[in-house]
Nucleic acid binder design. Structure first.
Length: 723
RNA sequence: GGGCGAUUAGCUCAGCUGGUAGAGCAACGAGUUUACACCUCGAAGGUCACAGGUUCGAGUCCUGUAUCGCCCACCA
């Protein structure tokens, strides 16, 4: 027996050594597995693409969970003999990364991006992104992720950029990408547009003011933003509201806080007659809803009164004031003029930017959009329909199933997707201008043309991830061999951001699904059930946890009992429990190896024919469990499979079988001894295999000390098949 | 306002297609027997939120109620 078993299991001394050995073997690469006979050329394939972590720093526990789950499926399938590919990569994460670096520069050098200029800022972000990348890669390895590093990708590298430009051009040519002046969510702090999904609503106390534009104006209106009223072009009332029908269609002029305004009274069923006065002042340029109502009544969109810095642009006393200051000025003016009728306290949901927490200012801007409701030429279906169909038909299965309802609900309410961003880090929009001419191309236009200044929403490139990582748009073997992928595993929080966009992009570009199954894990919370955050200081760092308890223990703690779609709580105590289990397993191996040394030379060769009926029965009980566990993994119940093998190893094998073996092994019945020794070796072998996907390091380490093994590495040893 | 989920042992949670409740942790009692104190053995702990219904039988299916949580929309 190996002397290493004389000491308690030491994860930190073992795990990095084992990972290096795996990497050196080349067996994370399916081509190598085929070459060495661990998979056949005609074996079925199994492919997963790693959801690319943002290069914004380091990984958190949510990533650790993701890696554990994906690695379990990958290792299981690899052992089952599939040509198994798990592709690694990272995401440039556009706005997230740029804002991290911008904050850093602001703090250290008190400079803005405009002080540095585009080129210099991109250089700095590049350096930061590289450092983050290296940190992330080493963290991925620490968790034991069996990724094929020879195929690593980055959303902003050359191949992926070409994929982005190619898809952009195809969508443009199909008439699905257009440039249009629309109200956007403008983030004055980040100085960029953001999508609807990047908005976070915050409840804040606010005041609702009721007033008239002027003394002779016939209708009172209510608003929380009086400063925007200088941009009003109309008052809308409900068509059935008897109080106001006499005024509908009339027009009035007024001077509101030094600003001349022209107001038309319109009737629109959007208006809630029970709210406020039942009449709403319309500011088309600074409100989504008002813009739409204005559209229906052919009202002007052009009265812009707030700029990109959230300052007023109207002449008079409001000029250049911040919107919040302007509000006070307007209230004062209303009071002086005797126009203010009522002030009430109310609670308002304020739209803020997820990344910068700046308050969103809706502004009309010329932006690039993807149209989701327009039939695609030659296919007759809209992008929306392309997103719905594969999930409806079952071609894509979402786990847990109830998220399919959420998915449908979201798609049905989907509006056009704004894909341009006024930031510099990302894929520059592949559009060039020369005077009135526009050119959209995969390669840069010739001299004399100027490229669009904006970049693409980061989800545009991640939407292509399943096929761009396989070398598309080139006609590669990888693309032919491994697409569509089998499993997409990610947190339910990005079902809309990402999963939906991948389906959209892949269905449009390839005419196929990107993946067959979507496995959604829940959020990882602290022991009290709170979200982990920097400000709360309750972050568990995966690196600390693995250093303390081992990656195997961390993986088990994240997986056991953690059903898909449900949030989970994690604490150091929980991980500690599985560190104890690591040591238990270690001692099981020690006992078995120590006590079977003198018995049959070649246990595998002699096998069950030398075993007693009662020992055979013990083996067949494990066969039943093997079947169950295999079935659980196949059905995505890894939270159960992990618990079952844990329970068997500790409470059956250790507590019962080993205990009752002690007198047998110490006794004088040679046949019984031999039978028992073979049994124990076979049970241990089986347990190591069943446990390997969950706890890869310790099982591999023990495997290396087994007297007989059917494969050089447990990682590629055949999964036990029970008839 | 619309949608989704949860409610099971002190705590965290399992319980797949209906067959008289399970795990881990905590707490309690005993123990140092040459695999392991990162251990062993033992005992304790639940009208499965509530009310109806379907069924020979319901934690599991149906209806309703209550409480909690999440997502979407965003009312000026």
């Amino acid at each position: 027996m190996d002397d290493k078993f004389l000491k308690p299991y030491n994860s930190s001394a073992t795990e990095s050594r084992i990972y290096t050995a795996w990497e050196k073997s080349g067996l994370f690469n399916p081509d190598e597995c085929v070459k060495r006979g661990f998979a056949k050329t005609d074996s079925p394939k199994y492919s997963i693409v790693l959801p690319p972590p943002n290069v914004t720093g380091r990984l958190h526990m949510g990533h650790a969970l993701m890696l554990a789950v994906e690695d379990i499926f990958v290792r299981y399938k690899r052992m089952c003999g599939y040509r198994t590919l798990w592709t690694p990569g990272t995401d440039h994460a556009a706005i997230a990364t740029q804002s991290v670096v911008e904050k850093q520069i602001k703090k250290e050098e008190n400079k803005s991006r405009h002080d540095l200029g585009r080129e210099e800022l991109l250089k700095r972000i590049g350096v930061f992104a590289n450092e983050s990348h290296d940190t992330i890669v080493s963290q991925l390895k620490t968790m034991g992720a069996s990724l094929d590093w020879s195929r690593e990708a980055f959303t902003l590298d050359e191949t992926r950029s070409r994929a982005v430009r190619t898809v952009f051009k195809r969508m443009y040519d199909a008439g699905l990408i257009y440039r249009g002046l629309r109200i956007v969510n403008w983030d004055p702090k980040g100085q960029t547009t953001i999508s609807d999904d990047e908005i976070v609503y915050e409840e804040r106390a606010a005041k609702l003011y009721t007033f008239r534009y002027s003394k002779d104006f016939p209708i009172s209106i209510a608003t929380t933003r009086p400063e925007t009223k200088v941009g009003d072009v109309a008052v809308a009332v409900h068509p059935d509201d008897a109080r106001y029908t006499a005024f509908v269609g009339k027009e009035y002029d007024a001077v509101f806080c030094d600003v001349p305004i022209h107001i038309k009274i319109v009737a629109d069923k959007e208006v809630d007659p029970t709210f406020g006065t039942g009449a709403v002042g319309l500011t088309p340029a600074h409100s989504h809803v008002d813009w739409e109502i204005a559209d229906r009544h052919l009202l002007s969109h052009e009265v812009i009164i707030i700029n990109e810095y959230a300052r007023m642009t109207v002449a008079g006393r409001l000029l250049d004031k911040k919107t919040t200051e302007a509000r006070e000025v307007v209230i004062e003016w209303l009071k002086e003029e005797g126009l203010l009728e009522k002030t009430e306290d109310t609670v308002q949901n304020i739209a803020t930017a997820e990344r910068t927490s700046g308050i969103i200012e809706p502004l009309p801007k010329l932006q690039w959009w993807i149209e989701v409701n327009k039939p695609i030429p030659g296919r007759g279906k809209t992008l929306k329909e392309l997103m719905l169909e594969p999930v409806r038909s079952g071609a894509i299965k979402i786990i847990p199933e109830y998220f399919e309802k959420t998915y449908f609900h979201w798609i049905e309410n989907l509006r056009d997707w704004c894909i341009s961003r006024q930031i510099w880090y990302g894929h520059r929009i592949p559009v060039w201008y020369r005077g009135e001419e526009i050119s959209v191309g995969i390669e840069p236009a010739e001299a004399g043309w100027t490229q669009d200044e904006d970049t693409l929403d980061t989800w545009f490139s991640s939407g292509l991830w399943t096929f761009s990582t396989l070398g598309w748009p080139d006609d590669t073997d990888d693309f032919k061999n491994y697409h569509p992928t089998d499993l997409l595993e990610t947190g339910y929080d990005i079902l809309f951001f990402w999963v939906a966009r991948m389906i959209l992009m892949t269905e449009f570009t390839i005419g196929d699904i990107p993946f067959k199954t979507v496995y959604l894990h829940g959020m990882v919370r602290d022991a009290q059930g709170r979200k982990m955050s920097k400000s709360l200081g309750n972050n568990l760092d995966p690196l600390d946890i693995t250093a303390k308890f081992g990656a195997d223990a961390a993986r088990m703690a994240l997986v056991v009992g953690n059903t898909p779609g449900t949030d989970m709580r994690i604490s150091e105590d929980k991980v500690k429990g599985y560190k104890h289990f690591s040591n238990k397993l270690w001692n099981i191996a020690r006992f078995i190896l120590e006590n079977t040394v003198d018995t049959p030379q070649n246990h595998v060769g002699r096998t069950t024919s030398y075993m007693s009926d009662s020992d055979k029965k013990i083996l067949s009980e494990l066969d039943v469990l093997t079947k169950e566990i295999t079935n659980d993994i196949d059905e995505y119940r890894i939270y159960l499979a992990a618990e079952k093998i844990y329970h068997y190893a500790w409470h059956e094998l250790a507590d019962k079988i080993i205990e009752e073996s002690k007198p047998i092994l110490a006794g004088s019945d040679v046949a019984a001894k031999e039978s028992r020794a073979i049994l124990l070796i076979l049970l241990l072998t089986r347990v190591l295999k069943l446990l390997h996907p969950f706890m890869p390091f310790i099982t591999e380490e023990i495997w290396q000390s087994m007297p007989t093994k059917d494969s050089e590495f447990l990682m590629v040893a055949p999964w036990p098949v029970v008839e």
